[in-house]
Amino acid sequence: MRNWMLYTPLAIFLGVSIFLFTGLFSDPWTRDSALLNRPLPEFDLPDLMQPEQRWNRELLTGEPFLLSVWGVWCPTCKAQLAFMEQLKEQGVKVVGLYYPLPVDPAFGEHFSLGQLQRDVRQQLQQFGDPYQFNILDENRRMSMDLGVSGAPETFLVDAEGRIRMHHVGDINPRVWRQKFEPAMEQIQDQSDTLVQQAEVNQIGASH
């Protein structure tokens, strides 16, 4: 009884120390997205460069792709363009979701599409263009449905249009290797088995 009492303060101290020590290395920015494994939300938005072309969820489903939320106002987005262009050359489909920023949030939206298109074209020419096309998120409603809190953020969407990963922050070689590559392989495996199943079903049906 006495011995047990003697070691209790030490045990409590060690417990608290370990808890606080692990807290030193935890990142308050990483948290699970509410949208994981859910289908992409419904939307109907114009293309950034050809506004008469409109995009929706059905047009995007069919193959896995990265949905990259970005804007010319965001320096980190600019920094990741070159690496993402390499990904495009490796055959990764990247779709941009343009997150427009009001000039001064406190004074409402002042927005000129022509100016924005010029800025975007210039930046993509200068730093690299990974995007197959860009969707203009007018009023940032799509971004809200996706739980986007800023830019850059990237979603990995699979062939069935489900969100498989929500990455907050930039994409760099390390993040790509550690986070995206395993997820991409998983998606690839799943779609392979789906194709195999479909083939088996077809063979079964033809017999």
């Binding site: 739980g147 986007v148 809190s149």
Partner: peptide, 20 residues
């Protein structure tokens, strides 16, 4: 506010807070 670490959306002027 999801962008700022400890502010409610009434206090924050981050774009996402304004939208929210």
């Amino acid at each position: 506010c999801p962008q700022c670490q400890n502010q409610n959306i009434a206090e924050s002027n981050a774009v996402v807070s304004i939208d929210m």
